[in-house]
Amino acid sequence: MSDGTNARHVKIVGSYWMRFSLRTGGGLTALLLALVTGLGVAQAFITPVENLMKEAPKLGHSEGEAADSIATIAESNEIAGALKWITGLGESEIEYLVTDQPALLSVIWIFLLAFIPFLTVLSAFNQTAGDIGNKGLRYLLLRTERSNIYLGRSVGTLLFSTGSLLLLLGLVLVYVGLKLKLYPFGDLASSGMHGFLALFFLSLPYIAMCGWFSAMFESAFGSLAICLLVTGFPILGLKMVNWATESDLAWMEQLTPWGWKYDLLSGDMGARLLAYGVMLGFTAVFLVLGMRQFQKRDL
C-alpha cells in the first residue's frame, strides 16, 4: 500500500500485541472480568434451571419431564413479554429466539450483548495511549510505519478479545451440553455460532472506537475514561430523555452500534446481515478516523 502498510508487519505487531496483552495489568484484568462477568450472567439463568432439574426426581419427575417443563416456561407469554420489553424486538423475533433456538442460550446471549461493549472497552482502551505517553513508540517507528503499528495493535486487540469470548462461550456451551443435556448437539452448535457471531460483530466497532480514542490521548487512564463515557453516556442519556419526556427516541440509539445489537441475533437473515454490515461500517469509520489521528500526532 502507498502509505507503507505491510501485511507481514501488521501480523508481527498484532501477534506480539495479543501475547503482550496478557502481560499487562489491564489485559489480565480485562480477561478475568470478561470471564467472571460472562459466567456470572450465564449463572443467573443456568442455576435456576439446574435447581429445577435437581429437584425434579425428589418430586417424582424424570429429567425429561423437567426439561419439558423448562421448555414450556421458556416459551411462555411471560418470558416472551419480558424479552420483548428488554430487547424491543418483534413477536416473531422473540418466538424465533425462544422456540426455534435453545431458549436458555438465547437469553444468555441477549444479556451478554448488553455487557460486551463495556467489556470490550476494558480490553481495548490502551492500544496506543500508554506508549504514546511514555514515548515508547518512537523505538518501534525505527522499524516499521505508523499504519502497521496502528493496524497491528487493532488486530492484536481483536484477537485477544475474540480469544476471551471463545473461552467464555466454550465454557457455557460445554456445560449446557454435557451437564444439563437440555438440547441436541446441532441446536447447541447453531446457537453457539449465532451467539458468537453476534458478540464478535458487536465488539468490532468498540475495538475500533477505543483505538481512535487511544490514539488521541497520552494517558491510558484518560483513554479508558473517555471510552467508557462515550460507550455508556449516550445510551443512558437517551433512555433518561425517553423516560422523562415519554417520547420515542429509541431510533436515535441506532446512530450508535448499541442500537443494532439485538438485530445481530435476528432470525431474519436479511436483518442479521444488515446488522453485521452496520457493525462493519461503524468499524471502518472508527478505524479510518483512528488511523488519521495516529498518522498525524506527535509520538
Binding site: L32, V36, L39, Q43, T47, Y175, K179
Partner: peptide, 14 residues
C-alpha cells in the same frame, strides 16, 4: 457439580 462452581475455577486455572 453446579454452574456457580465454574466461576471459582477461573482464577486458579488462569
Amino acid at each position: 457439580m453446579q454452574f456457580a462452581m465454574l466461576v471459582g475455577f477461573v482464577y486458579p486455572v488462569l
